[in-house]
Design a protein around this nucleic acid. Sequence first.
RNA 1: CGGGGUGUAGCGUAGCCCGGUAUCGCGCCACAUUUGGGAUGUGGAGGUCGUAGGUUCGAAUCCUGCCACCCCGACCA
Length: 493
Amino acid sequence: MSKGLPKRSEDYSLWYNELVKRADLAENSAVRGCMVIKPYGYSIWEKMQAQLDRMFKETGHTNAYFPLFIPKSYLSKEASHVEGFAKECAVVTHYRLKNAEDGTGVIVDPEAKLEEELIVRPTSETVIWSTYKNWIQSYRDLPLLVNQWANVVRWEMRTRLFLRTAEFLWQEGHTAHATKEEAMDETVQMMNVYAQFAEEYMAVPVVKGRKTENERFAGADETFCIEAMMQDGKALQAGTSHFLGQNFAKAFDVKFANKEGGLDYVWGTSWGVSTRLMGALIMAHSDDNGLVLPPKLAPIQVVIVPIYRGDAELEAISEKANEIMVELRKVGISVKFDNRDTHKPGWKFAEYELKGVPVRIAIGPRDLENGTIEIARRDNLSKEQFELSSQPIQEKILSLLDEIQNSIYQKAFNFREEKTTEVNSWEEFKSVLETKGGFVSAHWDGTSETEDKIKELTKATIRCIPLDQKEEEGQCVYTGNPSKGRVLFAKAY
RNA sequence: CGGGGUGUAGCGUAGCCCGGUAUCGCGCCACAUUUGGGAUGUGGAGGUCGUAGGUUCGAAUCCUGCCACCCCGACCA
């Protein structure tokens, strides 16, 4: 119905790009790889932020803010960390411009070269651990549970709106602990927080797991992740939580006096989710008519569209609409009454479908006569005539929003189950990846060499070693070497 | 950085081969009729043809340099 939105089945990637632009979520900016997040898109991000922030605080974390710039020397203090990020860092070399002598504009003032160049943060471990050194002396200072909401820059070769941009918004939690066990518990806890958020709020089912050494965060001893399945059968890493061991504590010399009077290095974690979650949200649920938003994250949950001829009818309908709005707002439902006379009802229907508003109420003269309204669901596009006398409207809508939330989760869950295939031979492995896509559950011999080889041959990577992996004797799907359990392979974003 | 492609109104495009001052659609503005699934008609506004130079009486069109973007590869937690 949507005018010209490409079909998912024809060109998934074009569909995604167009949808992001047409639904007013984001657009490309003048700077390559950087996006403008538009008001509607940003309001969805704000809802995500608000809920995540709540969950972080419930688990004992507080927010702080660290600087955008990192001295270049900091980055190289942790060897594997710098190796992981060096190739995509933006560097500040000067601090002043001046007018060009030929009057053609401004140029970098060569006199204003920085003594030490600054890196625009690709992540903040280094600047934060250099600060933690001053904050931590005793076990009494631990644990330190800090989160920051920030932007980071990673100079990616190829970018896509929300999924991979040169600058993106995220949160990064950085915690410090007295013991290894406590740090590990924290790492797992935050992975669980992410999984809960993805499933309960985004309605996106995820697989919890550990990363292989190849896919691990640069500087971490262990990386936990949540992996989601998109409608085109590709996997999307939706969030990561890293157990840093004592790596950063050693790199930045962060020690504390323990209860026994000895001096120990601190144990660390870091964890983050980004605006990439927007991409996951869009790709998990939306259809050829546009966005489908889960009610819990929709900026507008209910839109009321009046159908009328003339001012008298509009006035009568507005009165009814206002009554309904009051009731809905009392129970915390966000509702918009679109009484603009600059667009016709049909146009508005299509518009709110494109924008993924979960519930649409239409009220016309016929409804006023009959004491009804038309209620339409975005997720399955069904419509019903609802008799206002049959049930309080707020109850009706609350239960409907709930039902939609559950229903889109279930749909995404069923899709992922359908797209998850156990394979036992190399031939099967390749053919499933080529024809069906999705997660391929297979045995692997545990070596990086095999993982690399499989990636080279099929472009599939090990998304994770699922936490619920069953112990099962088997043979690596590629080398035939012994394996103790299945891991999940997929082509990924 | 290699290979291919594209730059024309806010967006999408025709014109380029074969040189003569820019086409069409959407959108925008005005008025009228419309309003239960993206209305119709009439009138109107809007363009340094990416950029710099060259050839020519004359360049969107031909030539050269540069820039930007897109696709494929390399790259990417």
